[in-house]
Amino acid sequence: MAKTAVQEFTKGLWAEIPPFRLVLGLCPILAVTKTVENGIGMGIATTFVLICSNILISLLRNVIPKKVRIACFIVVIATFVTVVELIMQAFAYPLFLKLGIFIPLIVVNCIVLGRAEAFAAKNGVVASLADGLGIGLGYTLSLTALAIVREVLGNGTFYDIPVFGPTFEPFSFMVQAPGAFVCLGLMLCIMNMLGKK
């Protein structure tokens, strides 16, 4: 239990990196990783919600009655999701358009609720902040990694900059739905192989 905030932070980056180690939060990772830009944007949005909800829930953890905690957590999370939604609309509208329905759907991302319940509701503010940051960053990293593979292979670009010559025929299967599944599946396999050591 006596983990430092740093440890809480770093575990999210490898030991418990969300979609790979805890197989949660798959929908957005499949849907928004067509391009690196989307992936990072989604990651940041989720991280924001994670951190804010973690902090708030950690603060309020003694006030919230146990029986309705899930409902309260959902309200808190939904509030922050809406905040993200509004801020994004105001300041990063193109990204908002691309992420579309998946921004409101952060609210049903199991990772956010899971961390709130499993961690923030039981730990102090600093630890919860570190946990939220770590998990959020880990999630962002995973999104980015998948997005890089998909964008580079499927579109021949990285952050919209062409990486191959003009003769490159993009492997556009990768940016389509089946490609997303297959690609994530194979990445999970690689993670499993690495994790074994």
Partner: peptide, 10 residues
């Protein structure tokens, strides 16, 4: 109550 309640199915 002790379980996370995230219903993740894990």
């Amino acid at each position: 109550d002790a379980l996370p309640g995230a219903n993740c199915g894990g």
